[in-house]
Simulated assay, not measured.
Amino acid sequence: MTATSPLSGLFADGQRLLRLALRLDAVVTGANGLAYVALAGPLEDLLGLDVAHSRVIGAFLLAYAAAVWAVSVRPRRMAVTAVIEANLVWSVLSVVAVVTGWLSLSVVGGVWAVLQAMVVAGFAGLQYTAQRRG
Rank of each mutant, 00 (worst) to 15 (best):
G122A: 13
D25R: 05
L115I: 11
L49P: 13
V99M: 08
V92T: 06
L49S: 08
V114E: 04
N32E: 02
V119T: 14
V56D: 02
R16Y: 00
A52V: 15
S106P: 03
S8V: 09
L62S: 04
W102V: 08
V80W: 08
L18I: 11
V51N: 01
T2E: 07
S72L: 11
V99A: 15
A70F: 14
G33V: 02
A67P: 04
L34G: 15
L61D: 07
R76A: 12
A31S: 10
Y128D: 07
D50V: 15
L47R: 00
D50M: 08
A31V: 15
W69S: 06
L43P: 01
G9D: 12
A38V: 14
N87A: 09
L46I: 14
V28P: 00
T129N: 04
S94Q: 06
L7T: 14
E44I: 00
S94F: 03
L49K: 11
A86C: 09
D25T: 10
G109R: 02
G48I: 06
L88F: 11
L47F: 13
V68A: 05
A82S: 13
L46R: 07
R16K: 15
L105F: 07
L93H: 00
A52L: 14
V71C: 10
F123Y: 09
L34T: 15
A65G: 09
A124D: 04
H53R: 15
L115Y: 01
N87R: 07
S5I: 05
I84H: 04
A12G: 12
R132P: 01
L62W: 01
V73K: 06
L88G: 07
S72D: 05
L10C: 05
M118W: 00
W69F: 15
R23I: 08
T129S: 11
A67F: 15
A21C: 12
A121Q: 06
V89D: 01
S91C: 13
A117N: 06
V56M: 07
V68G: 05
A124T: 08
